[in-house]
Design a protein around this nucleic acid. Sequence first.
DNA 1: ATCGCCAATGAAACGTGTTCTAGTTGTGGT
DNA 2: ACCACAACTAGAACACGTTTCATTGGCGAT
Lengths: 199, 199
Amino acid sequence: MGAQAPASLRMRNQSQRRKRIVQTAAALALRGGVEAMQMRAVAERAGVALGTLYRYFPSKMDLVVAVVTEELDLLERSIERRPPAAPTAAGRAVDVLLRATRGLMREPELGDALVRSLIMTEATTDLAPRITDLLWRVARQETDAERVPDRESPDYLVVGSLCGVWIFEVLEVLKGHRDVEQVQHRLQVTADRLLAGMD
Amino acid sequence: MGAQAPASLRMRNQSQRRKRIVQTAAALALRGGVEAMQMRAVAERAGVALGTLYRYFPSKMDLVVAVVTEELDLLERSIERRPPAAPTAAGRAVDVLLRATRGLMREPELGDALVRSLIMTEATTDLAPRITDLLWRVARQETDAERVPDRESPDYLVVGSLCGVWIFEVLEVLKGHRDVEQVQHRLQVTADRLLAGMD
DNA sequence: ATCGCCAATGAAACGTGTTCTAGTTGTGGT
DNA sequence: ACCACAACTAGAACACGTTTCATTGGCGAT
């Protein structure tokens, strides 16, 4: 995926630095959440100047997105390793979303960050499409990550909607209005209707 | 709704002040969005001290929510005045959501504020349930706003999901990833599946 | 009319994201 | 080996939400 072969020494240094920054940021976010992930603190602990940090990540949000993106990589690998086994498309999609939900809730601070970044970001890399694609593959039981889906088909479209619903539900959990049980139920009902006949 | 009879002179003054603050905030938000609605500016233009502003609205978010709540009142009255006429539940729901969408896009800055507040707010008054209830009434063609819906029924639940999808779509529009046409199409497809058989 | 008290005032100060400036360093091309 | 230049550093400064506090003033009970 993203890992370019670092052509020169300069680039190698830069990608090292970048990685160090993201790791530092993740560590800070893990305990204390987004608010603990303060730009000065990240810069200091990563051993770079504040200005440098801002050269790599023009805003805090960009940094959050970078952290969250790594989390998403983890989820994708976990799915690959242990694909959902439910018999229906809806079941598989719900399975994946619940796994993601529980993952997020294990670190609510990070979950908060994810959702906020999914929502607020004008950032370059958009996370929602990635999740939608992931759901799409899972629902269709395509292991092949390369095959590009027909993004205009109604089925793909409603998978996008399901992604939206999930984000919304995670928000509700984070706000303390629901627990994971309720989310499971709601996602199941919603997915059943949205993905009916996709098997 | 909320208008208590102001019992004393003191209370009258307070509700006047409060109203003045919200109006000022709305005016500022209208041109320039949330960022133009700065606490110092609101306080100054409303003719109150900063501390007073914070007595009435403990955080900027609370102020935004107050502004947005007024907007929502407007929408509800507009629906009451001119109810959606589509023959299906899904059609009516989509009609209302599109009206809301277009209203928001007329003032994108304010739309941004609404959605952000729907999302971020830990604030007391929660807006999403209000929208869900509104959709529910419209879908069922109940003009009676008093009748409390069965919040556990699957049908009510998927209306909640539809509300989530709408918020998500508005976000995409605000981010410039979609136009209203696309949103209409997506909402229609989604609502058709979610609300099938609700007529 | 007087008094007590709560709410409003004004102004300063804090915290954190973001920007700016001036000086330094290390890398790649020649 | 040397130069040019982009990237890095240190730190100050700015913007805006939020907090604090001493002072003032008007409402309501007496």
